[in-house]
């Protein structure tokens, strides 16, 4: 409750949350708003925005750009959410292991994480999706595989510092089992940065998905924002709306997620909280 109040004090965060809800609504209502497949011809090719009953114009095959954006929202949000969930799971598991156990395990996990952080993640994502053929599964997997390292690092750092905190030592002196200590004493106190990271990671996952589908690595059966921009690229002199509007959709969604992330981070930052209390 207290957290929600602090979050609401952050105007940007509220705007972000409302925007995200709107995008979510459009995604859910896509079949209602635009009955019929977004791949079907809806009017004359290259209709500028507003003409032929199409708010945002049509593409080279006469498909409605607005419908494409609405259906694309489903893919973007789905990919963003699922790949983030997976990357958080991997990151938390590895980070917790490294931070709690320390020593050799920590060394090994951190080398592994550093390695994944060193290699150019976007190139790796391209390679993975290309080799395993583009599909929603391979895209989600590729994005998750390249986005867990920051999570692991943050979780490890949190665990490392919490593990030496006196209340964790007290729990150990009480004879609690390690698994209970991790779950009830350490993890709940490491949650804030993980939540912040989750919202920021969702944003970058959406960017990554759009980049992949821009390069033609999207799921061929699913409409997506990056695909729309990619198909508008070669005809940008002829039909600017084909690339402009999907780009705005990406921008708005990613910005909203980033704003939420910042609002959460401010609301949960203990240092700022302390300053407010004194």
């Amino acid at each position: 409750m207290e957290l929600l109040r602090r979050f609401a004090r952050h105007p940007g965060a509220v705007v972000g949350a409302v925007t995200l809800l709107l995008v979510l609504a459009v995604a859910l209502l896509a079949p209602v708003l635009f009955p019929g497949s977004p791949w079907d011809m809806a009017g004359a090719p290259f209709s500028p925005p507003g003409e032929d009953g199409m708010l945002l114009g049509s593409d080279s095959l006469g498909r409605d750009v607005a419908a494409g954006i609405a259906y694309g929202a489903r893919v973007s949000l789905l990919v963003g959410a699922v790949s983030t969930a997976v990357s958080i799971l991997i990151g938390v598991a590895l980070g917790a292991l490294a931070g709690y156990l320390g020593g050799v395990v920590d060394d090994a996990v951190m080398r592994f994480t550093e390695f994944f952080q060193t290699i150019p993640s976007f190139v790796l994502a391209i390679l993975l999706v290309a080799i395993f053929t583009p599909s929603i599964t391979s895209i989600v997997a590729a994005i998750a595989i390249v986005s867990w390292p920051p999570v692991a690092r943050v979780v490890r750092a949190e665990f490392l510092s919490l593990r030496n905190r006196e209340f964790v030592q007290a729990a150990e002196v009480l004879g609690k089992r390690p698994i209970a200590i991790v779950l009830t004493d350490i993890l709940p106190n490491a949650l804030s940065p993980i939540i912040v990271l989750a919202s920021l990671n969702t944003a970058s996952a959406i960017l990554l998905e759009s980049s992949l589908s821009f390069l033609g690595l999207g799921d061929p059966n699913l409409m997506s924002w990056g695909f729309l921009i990619g198909s508008g690229r070669s005809v940008i002199r002829l039909a600017w709306w084909m690339s402009v509007f999907p780009g705005i959709a990406i921008f708005v969604t990613v910005l909203a997620l980033n704003l939420i992330g910042e609002g959460l981070s401010d609301a949960m930052n203990p240092r700022l909280r302390k300053r407010g209390a004194r």
């Binding site: 759009s210 980049s211 921009i229 508008g232 690229r233 940008i236 780009g247 990406i250 921008f251 910005l255």
Partner: peptide, 18 residues
């Protein structure tokens, strides 16, 4: 900074071209 942080690279490129 927040705006550029949220904009897809390729789209910025296209808009600059435009």
């Amino acid at each position: 900074a927040l705006a550029f942080y949220a904009t897809p690279l390729f789209w910025v490129g296209l808009m600059l071209v435009l």
